[in-house]
Amino acid sequence: GQVNVNNTTYTFPTPKLAKEFAQKAAKKYNLTVHVSGNTVTVK
């Protein structure tokens, strides 16, 4: 799974890890998680 945070893309071996990372990043920066297919964007 891929996660985009502040124009930086992070790649994870599983969608589960990507989702967990996205949720932590969203909480940390007070942003929202947007899911589109296999790509998760935090903005």
Rank of each mutant, 00 (worst) to 15 (best):
E20G: 04
L31P: 01
L31F: 06
N7H: 15
A25Q: 06
Q23Y: 13
Q23P: 00
P13S: 10
S36C: 04
T32I: 14
S36W: 09
V40D: 00
A18E: 01
V40C: 00
A22K: 02
P13M: 07
K27Y: 08
A26L: 10
K16Y: 08
V42L: 08
A25G: 02
F12P: 01
Q23L: 12
G37T: 02
N30V: 03
K16G: 09
A22D: 00
Q2S: 12
P15V: 13
T14F: 03
K28N: 08
T11M: 07
T8L: 10
T9G: 03
Q2K: 09
K19H: 11
V5P: 12
T8K: 14
H34S: 13
Q23M: 11
S36I: 11
T39E: 05
V3N: 11
F21I: 02
T9N: 05
K27W: 06
A22I: 02
Y10E: 01
P13Q: 08
N7V: 15
T32S: 09
A25Y: 15
V40S: 00
V40Y: 04
K27T: 09
A26T: 09
A18Y: 00
N4F: 08
Y29D: 05
N38W: 03
N6P: 10
G1N: 12
Q23R: 14
Q2Y: 10
T11S: 07
S36A: 09
G37Y: 04
F12M: 02
T8E: 06
P15S: 11
T9F: 07
N6Y: 15
A18I: 01
G37W: 03
K19S: 07
V40E: 00
V42N: 00
E20P: 00
T39N: 05
A22E: 02
T14N: 11
K19P: 00
P15K: 11
V3I: 12
G1W: 07
L31Q: 05
T14Y: 03
L31I: 10
S36P: 00
K19M: 14
K27E: 13
P15G: 07
G1Q: 12
T32H: 08
T32D: 09
K16V: 07
V35H: 04
K24M: 15
V3K: 06
S36T: 09
N38Q: 05
V5T: 11
V42Q: 01
T32M: 08
N38K: 07
A18F: 01
A25S: 04
V3Q: 12
K16D: 13
T39D: 03
N4K: 07
Y29Q: 06
S36F: 10
K27F: 07
T39Q: 08
T39L: 07
T11P: 02
K43Q: 14
A26I: 13
H34G: 04
P15W: 07
Q2M: 12
V5D: 11
G37E: 05
N30T: 04
Q2V: 12
K43F: 15
A26S: 10
F12N: 00
A26M: 13
T8I: 14
N6G: 13
E20S: 07
N7S: 15
V35R: 05
V5W: 14
T14R: 02
T14V: 02
T14Q: 02
V33I: 07
T39A: 05
F12S: 01
T41D: 03
L17N: 03
T8N: 08
Q23A: 13
V3H: 12
V35Q: 05
L17T: 04
N30P: 04
L17W: 05
T14H: 04
E20H: 07
Y10Q: 02
T11L: 06
E20F: 08
N4H: 13
L31W: 14
N4P: 12
A18M: 01
V3F: 10
L17S: 06
K19L: 14
A22N: 01
N6V: 14
N7D: 11
Q2E: 10
Y29L: 06
Y10S: 01
P13A: 14
F12R: 00
V33E: 00
T41A: 03
K16M: 10
V35L: 09
F21H: 02
T8D: 05
T14L: 03
K19E: 11
T8Q: 09
K27L: 12
A26E: 10
A26V: 11
N6F: 15
T8V: 14
T9A: 05
T11E: 06
K19R: 13
L31E: 03
K24I: 14
A22T: 01
A18S: 01
Q23D: 13
P15A: 14
N38R: 11
Y29P: 10
V33K: 00
T14E: 03
L17H: 08
N4Y: 06
V42D: 00
F12G: 00
A25R: 03
V33Q: 00
P13H: 07
K43S: 14
A26G: 05
T14I: 02
N7W: 15
V35S: 02
N4G: 12
T32P: 05
S36R: 08
L17F: 04
T11R: 08
K28L: 13
T32A: 09
V5A: 12
T9P: 02
Q23V: 11
A25N: 03
N38Y: 04
N38A: 06
T41Q: 06
N38L: 07
H34D: 06
Q2A: 12
V35G: 00
T8R: 14
T41N: 04
G1I: 14
V5Q: 11
F12L: 03
N7P: 10
Q23I: 14
Y10G: 00
K24A: 10
N4S: 12
V40T: 01
V42H: 01
F21D: 00
F21R: 00
T39R: 08
V3T: 12
A25C: 08
L31S: 04
V3G: 12
T11N: 06
K24W: 15
S36K: 09
Y29A: 06
N4L: 11
K28M: 08
T11Q: 06
N30A: 06
T39M: 09
K16P: 03
V3C: 09
K19G: 05
K28I: 11
K16T: 10
T14S: 10
N30Y: 08
F12W: 02
Y10D: 01
K43E: 13
T39V: 12
N7Y: 15
A25T: 08
A26K: 13
G37L: 04
P13E: 09
T8C: 14
Y29M: 05
K43G: 08
A26Q: 12
T9H: 06
K43W: 15
F21N: 01
V5I: 13
N7L: 15
T14M: 02
V35Y: 04
N6W: 15
T41L: 07
K28D: 10
V35E: 02
Q2N: 12
A22H: 01
T9L: 07
H34N: 07
H34T: 14
K28P: 02
K27M: 09
T8F: 14
V5N: 12
F12Q: 01
T9S: 08
T39W: 03
K43D: 08
A26W: 07
T11H: 10
V5E: 12
H34V: 15
V40F: 04
E20M: 12
K24N: 08
T14G: 04
F21V: 02
Y29H: 08
K24S: 07
T8H: 13
H34E: 13
V5R: 10
P13T: 08
T32R: 06
V40L: 02
T11A: 04
V40A: 04
F12V: 00
V35C: 03
V33T: 04
K19V: 08
V42M: 05
P15I: 11
V5S: 11
H34I: 15
A26R: 14
K27D: 09
A25M: 15
T9M: 09
A26Y: 07
T11Y: 13
V35K: 02
A18C: 01
Q2F: 12
G37A: 04
N38E: 03
Q23T: 10
N4V: 11
L31T: 07
A22M: 02
H34W: 14
Y29R: 04
Y29S: 05
Y10V: 03
K27Q: 11
V3R: 03
T39G: 02
P15Y: 08
A26N: 06
K28Q: 09
K43T: 15
S36V: 13
S36G: 03
N30Q: 07
A25H: 07
K16L: 10
N30L: 06
T32N: 08
K27R: 09
T39P: 00
N4I: 13
Q2G: 12
A22S: 03
K19W: 15
G1R: 03
A22W: 02
A18N: 00
L31M: 08
G1M: 14
L17P: 01
N30F: 09
N6S: 13
T9E: 05
A22F: 02
K24G: 04
V3P: 12
K16W: 08
G1H: 13
N6M: 14
L31V: 14
V35A: 03
Q2W: 14
K16S: 10
P15L: 11
F12D: 01
K43H: 14
T39K: 09
N38T: 08
E20I: 13
K19A: 10
